[in-house]
Design a protein around this nucleic acid. Structure first.
Lengths: 104, 104
DNA sequence: ATAATATGCAGGCAAATACCTGCATGTCAA
DNA sequence: TTGACATGCAGGTATTTGCCTGCATATTAT
């Protein structure tokens, strides 16, 4: 997993919206996704390319259409590497902060 | 939680490194953090400001020093909103993808 | 008081980003 | 085959980003 690509991909509201759209209805074409986006088709294509480079979306060509599918694996990896790490020490980290804010 | 700020903050290797450094040793000063970064102090300051704006880091001034503490709450929120959502449908999403890749 | 230390503030610059328009290609259906 | 439709490719531009340097301020220690 390339953490940088995954996080950068997630760091844009349009791309997170695309993931949400695919979560509601997996396997949509570029055209279908564009109908929900309010931007030129080309811009949506670029966003989808970034999601694909991060391996968050995989595509399949069917005739003249291109179908888009979510790949949930990188998100799971992000959780394992980033969220769980801080989750483990969560209470003690919060404690550090609170104690310091209260003037030690 | 401002998802956009949190994701954008996480979308940079230097800032993720800062979070790791604080996870190892919470409450470090700007100077201490800079020693591990290989960039000018000002650049590090800007990264820390972004982490602070995303509420991932809180600071306390002590004399002439500024102490930095991780706030694990936004990361937890990101998990709740983004990772768990896809985690729930994870197997079926993977199934969609696999079936399509195999030619349906 | 004065020097050393820790951080803040302002501005400048190159690269990356997120849009766009215009045209080309490939596929389906009449 | 030909026209309509779905997507690909190329390039142009304004904004944002990440880094820097130079100078200012505030705190501690001698």
């Amino acid at each position: 997993m390339d953490a940088d690509k995954v996080f950068k991909a997630l760091g844009d509201a349009t791309r997170r919206r695309l993931l949400d759209l695919l979560c509601e209805n997996n396997g949509q074409t570029l055209g279908q996704l564009c109908e929900n986006l309010d931007m030129a088709r080309q811009s949506a294509t670029q966003h989808l390319e970034i999601l694909e480079a991060a391996n968050l979306v995989s595509t399949v060509k069917r005739g003249r259409e291109k179908l888009h599918f979510i790949n949930p694996v990188p998100l799971h990896d992000v959780y394992e590497r980033w969220v769980r790490k801080f989750e483990r020490g969560r209470l003690s980290l919060l404690h550090d902060l609170k104690r310091e804010l209260e003037g030690e």
